[in-house]
């Protein structure tokens, strides 16, 4: 699924039609043989707006309204509650570990795939995509099977007093798994299209490998890298299914923001659940804006 999926995800923010560019004559202008009558156009636009509005905009607005239903003071209390704050902290901590891991991996993998031809190269590309094709529940489950109490390494871990599942390491691992492909997928096509002439020139002029990477390669891939980091971070903070399996749902201890939303909802604390959910909405919208801004930079290059 992955090729097309990632392409779709990437293109969604990056390409799109140039905003404000004239497309077709304005409504009311004379009709060419390849245009539709105005009523058809209005209907199509109406259906498009109706469908997207009803399915996306209305639920999003509902979160904000429900969050503020009991007033700003209640909203503030729900967010400043210790369990909510600890969920915020855990979410940022898990992302702060998982994202850099995947950034280093993504750069290394893209470097290997874009610059070298080796046996198994296409298999490697497919394997990088694998986490996108697997259900998040299964992604979490494999770590449970590996590190859980009945898992393959479970007895050994227990003997050594190491807790992976239902603790921070498990949450970080599950997050890393689901966000694994994002950076690499952004960089591979970018680095392939850029070629290696500038790097070769730098090496010929006497730069070391590290100097070449920092001064030549990194500036070239900078915006693609940022784009991948935004995608990766947004997914890391919002991941629910995979983290849900390995977290154990201990309120205030191993609950990330999305899990905290679920806990509150199950405890019938609806207003608080929506308040915390609204934080995630803000993060998601911020990631969308960041993607659009970065996408424009990538196009310029």
């Amino acid at each position: 699924m992955t090729d097309a999926l990632a392409m779709a995800a990437r293109r969604s923010a990056r390409v799109g039609p140039p905003l404000g560019a004239p497309i077709g004559p304005p409504i009311g202008a004379p009709i060419a043989a390849t245009d539709e009558p105005a009523w058809v156009r209005r209907t199509v636009i109406g259906v498009a707006i109706g469908f997207v509005g009803l399915f996306v905009l209305v639920p999003l607005a509902a979160v904000v309204v429900e969050a503020l239903r009991a007033g700003l003071a209640a909203y503030g209390r729900a967010i400043a509650e210790p369990a909510a704050l600890s969920a915020v902290k855990l979410t940022f901590l898990a992302s702060a570990i998982a994202v850099p891991l995947n950034v280093v991996f993504g750069v290394a993998a893209a470097w290997a795939i874009a610059r070298f031809r080796f046996p198994g190269r296409s298999i490697l590309i497919t394997l990088i995509d694998l986490p996108l094709a697997v259900s998040p529940v299964i992604a979490g489950m494999v770590y449970l099977l590996l590190f859980g109490r009945q898992g393959l390494l479970g007895p050994w871990l227990t003997d050594h007093g190491i807790k992976v599942v239902f603790a921070l390491p498990g949450i970080v691992l599950a997050t890393t798994f689901v966000t694994f492909p994002f950076v690499a997928r952004e960089l591979i096509p970018l680095m392939e299209s850029q070629g290696a002439e500038e790097e070769e020139a730098a090496i010929v002029l006497g730069a070391t490998g590290w100097q070449t990477f920092v001064r030549v390669t990194l500036p070239k891939i900078k915006w693609g890298l940022w784009y991948g980091i935004v995608l990766c971070t947004a997914r890391a903070m919002g991941e629910f299914g995979a983290v849900s399996v390995v977290s154990g749902h201990i309120r205030g201890r191993t609950a990330t923001l999305p899990l905290h939303v679920e806990i509150l909802y199950n405890e019938y604390e609806y207003q608080a659940a929506f308040a915390v959910a609204s934080l995630l909405v803000v993060l998601a919208l911020a990631s969308l804006v960041a993607r659009r801004v970065i996408a424009r930079r990538v196009e310029v290059i």
Partner: peptide, 22 residues
Amino acid sequence: LDAIVDIPFALPTAVSGLALTA
């Protein structure tokens, strides 16, 4: 509208579920 189409990609699934239920 073009931007809104991306929201289901960007929104954490738990939030989507909560919002739709509401």
